[in-house]
């Protein structure tokens, strides 16, 4: 997830163009991350130290980790931890960008610092995001929200990642009094809390892509099917949330989901908007929590 979020930032700031990004993504699929790249990313070694170990590797038939330990740069425990990180998507992205000569090994740290500064993240936030684990990333973005809303956002992104696009990523959330939509799938939750969960889609082809990924191409033939699939996605997400909440003795009941196929607005005092990108298109997850809202169509 963080690989895609960071790539999005690099494209938006002009550091990468779309062709370069495509090359990196293609290369990323085949990548096995070298231990030296991970050691630099984890700030356990400098680029110079890694180069030195690489040169020693060329001279002796030994593994990177063994040389790094014998040279005193790493201990055995650190090598084990680095080995466990070899499949991490952010690191494979980094490796692919470096190997394609698109971004230099030494540049990544500066780019991450810029990303951190521009988005007001802490260093700890960046370290959490580099794990690429949804459950560690989503709370960073919605830390101000009530616990149940945090859970809801986590379940949504985890479910989209599992069922629709494992490269889904989120953008910074914001709060509005009125949010426009071109099409909307929504469901109301009642019980101990009164919650609206909705997904607003702007483009038909985007909705269609998500619907096909969710339900299979053989089951989706038109816009109504796409909206129906989005409703069912919300229903599954809310069902998982309600199940999780019931284990904590929080009562959450679900109304039947509803679709709005025409343009409109969701209005409320505090409509939380969590943008997420799936199948290459941006969607908005809309949430109101324990307050009135209205959906106006037309």
């Amino acid at each position: 997830m963080f690989d895609r979020l960071f790539a999005d930032y690099l494209v938006k700031t002009g550091r990468l163009n779309c062709d370069q990004l495509d090359r990196i993504y293609q290369d990323q699929q085949k990548k096995y991350v070298r231990l030296g790249v991970i050691a630099v990313s984890e700030k356990l070694m400098t680029v110079e130290e890694v180069e030195e170990v690489n040169q020693l590797q060329a001279l002796y038939d030994k593994r990177f980790g063994d040389i790094a330990v014998s040279e005193g740069y790493l201990n055995e425990e650190q090598v084990s931890r680095l080995l466990a990180l070899q499949g991490n998507p952010f690191l494979t992205f980094m490796q692919a960008a470096i190997d394609s000569d698109i971004i230099g090994a030494g540049e990544f740290d500066d780019l991450l610092k810029e990303f951190q500064k521009e988005n007001n993240f802490t260093l700890m936030n960046i370290e959490e995001m580099k794990s690429c684990q949804v459950d560690r990333i989503v709370p960073i973005f919605v830390y101000k929200e009530p616990e149940l809303v945090k859970k809801l956002c986590g379940v949504m992104i985890r479910t989209v990642s599992r069922l629709i696009d494992n490269h889904v990523f989120i953008r910074k959330p914001y709060v509005e009094k009125s949010v426009d939509f071109e099409a909307l799938a929504r469901q109301e939750l009642n019980g101990d809390h009164h919650i609206l969960t909705a997904i607003a889609g702007d483009a038909d082809d985007g909705m269609m892509k998500v619907a096909v990924a969710f339900a299979g191409a053989e089951n989706v033939s038109d816009r109504d099917d796409s909206l129906d699939a989005l409703c069912e996605l919300i229903n599954c997400v809310n069902g998982l949330l309600a199940t999780e909440a019931s284990n904590d003795d929080v009562d959450v009941d679900m109304d039947a989901p509803m679709a709005e196929g025409n343009k409109g607005k969701v209005r409320g005092e505090n409509v939380l908007v969590l943008p997420f990108v799936a199948c290459g298109r941006e969607f908005k997850m809309l949430i109101t929590y324990d307050e009135d809202y209205e959906v106006v169509v037309g």
Binding site: T159, L163, E232, N235, C236, N238, G239, L240, A242, T243, A245, S246, N247, D251, V252, D253, M254
Partner: peptide, 25 residues
């Protein structure tokens, strides 16, 4: 076959005569 997998719903359904409960997704 339902998304609503709350304990209370599952128990209510089984008590009312459902043979099993499959949660979506």
């Amino acid at each position: 076959v339902s998304a609503a997998g709350q304990k209370s719903k599952v128990l209510e359904a089984l008590k009312a005569g459902a043979l099993d409960f499959l949660q979506k997704p």
